[in-house]
Design a protein around this nucleic acid. Structure first.
Lengths: 334, 334
DNA sequence: CTGAAAGCGCTTACAG
DNA sequence: CTGAAAGCGCTTACAG
């Protein structure tokens, strides 16, 4: 492997001068610089980042924890984070936790050796118990896409999930719906609460069992829960699915019961990534600002942003209308 | 930050001895080891991997290129590779190319600095043109999930895609199907060829236009192509989709045309990851040994496996029967 | 089994 | 603007 020393000898200077040319930190006389650059090209020199890391203390690498990469939401988050990092000249060390706290802990230990300049953690399910371990990490830790209780002591940039649910509820209220269901994942209580609030603010108090929790956040789990719910309350005209997969399941359930979306049932999805990909109808959906979230989290982690403070950054989701919602048919009770 | 030197002073030994304890490379007297371990615990020492990398020349990190992480197939590949790496104590540096050769080239340059012990490249679309750049990489490069022409000079562990197509064809032939279509992605010519061969071997020559290429490998692209194909050849009784999303689209197209799967149309998918996730019916599918592929690729890359040789390793896919295929109705032409 | 020395390839002040 | 020196934190032979 050709080193800085080799280049220096070739160019008739000190390796120090080569360093100055490569880093651009100190100005070098044009003639010297030209000689150095020529030598670099001739020798095919490429700097050793490991050596640089040891000297500077920065590896230009950032770790990212996500529960999985198989869920469309997290797949998008990973790519957004990667983009944000690349723009800043950083590389991405990916760790999936697979909803396994122990696995997360192991990953953490592996990163503890300062081989990373910062750590981003997306999704709250698995790490919450291990957060104290992060307190004495030797690099900044930033949390994002955090729906559960926001922990103290860490910078957080996440989405106002309550607001997202509220948007879904308001949309359906504006279309005149009164009998609505929420098809929820166990972890999505905040979104569901926002939805209920929209109805309540409007004078419509949905019954406690309007929120149906799928046993598991899969298509099958959603299908079972949706069939169940729609059979138990056949007069339901609208449904809010807190998760993309659940929304697809809800549409399928309606279909299986002979109902048409949106004519007989309006469906609002939450961050409906695969809808455009895997379903015929574009779903009306709450959309999360994933790119913005990734960018802010990266800026925060790399110290390019304003000092953390303790206040979490809450980004606002928006509602994107699709073909899965329509005005409620006829007056209530008809 | 506490260093090996700090531990050494605390334990009353040389940092050399601490190193011996930490790496376990050289035996240390039990009493000494105990003192060292105690000092490590008291000080909370954790070795600096960057320094170790510089000294040893190994960063215990492997790069992985995939086109995207949003496609279920590659999401699975990423997680399988991550698992294989973790078992061997390596970390994963993820680079998505997004079907962009230029982006791939930039990533490559960023890794050229020996900060990685090996590079795995999954998926062939984007890198093919830049493969020569890899020839003088200073780390082993292993290709996997490579369907296009296998390049010389690189170890490859991939799947016998032709065999996968053949399995799909044989399955449908055994069910008595004679009029079949292939719904293909542009890049999936090998799978399609295997399918045609199965019919041909059986004396059934499918017409040239039996292979319909979707304009884009998305749900919408598949839907358009499938509707088109099924309208043009209404007597079709079976369909092989070379891509998971296309299979879901084909089912949807059949439905839209008033046909039932599998009664009026048998559908075989290829590596149907999201079927269980996002569709009601479990699709009959060619399944790829992703885990095995990941493991072999990692072993090869890390030199834990037999020397590369030039012969590509071809793993065999299998056919997993689901609910989307059935015996062809009546005699041919009925 | 333990210690003194050199080295991995770079950067960072600090003189000239 | 350029060069000599020290140091980043570890490992690797090599003596004792």
């Amino acid at each position: 492997m050709v080193t800085m020393q080799d280049v220096a000898e070739r160019a008739g200077v000190t390796k120090q001068t080569v360093s100055n040319v490569v880093t651009g930190r100190v100005a070098v006389r044009p003639a010297t610089e030209a000689r150095v650059r020529a030598a670099i090209a001739e020798l095919g020199y490429v700097p050793n980042l490991v050596a640089r890391s040891l000297a500077t203390g920065s590896s230009r690498t950032v770790g990212l924890f996500v529960p999985t990469v198989s869920a469309p939401f997290y797949a998008d988050v990973v790519e957004e984070v990667e983009d944000a990092l690349e723009e800043r000249g950083y590389r991405l060390l990916l760790c999936t936790t697979r909803h396994d706290g122990e696995r997360a802990r192991r990953h953490l230990a592996a990163l503890a050796s300062r081989s990373v300049d910062a750590l981003l953690i997306a999704g709250d399910q698995d790490l919450t118990g291990h957060l104290p371990l992060l307190a004495d990490a030797r690099f900044p830790v930033v949390l994002c896409a955090w729906e559960a209780a926001l922990p103290d002591g860490f910078p957080v940039v996440t989405v106002d999930y309550e607001h997202g649910g509220h948007l879904a509820g308001r949309h359906l209220r504006e279309l005149g719906h009164e009998r609505a269901l929420v098809l929820a994942s166990p972890a999505h209580t905040v979104r569901a609460a926002g939805f209920l609030r929209a109805f309540r603010e409007d004078g419509v108090e949905l019954p406690a069992d309007a929120v149906r929790t799928a046993a598991e956040p899969t298509f099958r789990g959603g299908l079972v829960a949706a069939l169940d719910a729609l059979r138990a309350r056949p007069d339901t005209t609208a449904l809010f699915a807190t998760h993309d997969v659940l929304a697809v399941a809800a549409v399928e359930a309606a279909r299986a019961l002979g109902r048409t979306v949106p004519d007989d049932l309006s469906v609002v999805a939450h961050d409906d990534t695969p809808a455009g990909l895997l379903s015929g109808t574009a779903l009306t959906s709450v959309v999360l600002p994933k790119r913005e979230m990734a960018r802010r989290a990266v800026d925060l982690a790399l110290g390019a942003a304003a000092p953390p403070g303790t206040r979490p950054q809450l980004l606002l989701p928006s509602l994107v209308p699709g073909a899965s919602t329509a005005r409620a048919a006829g007056p209530s009770g008809a």
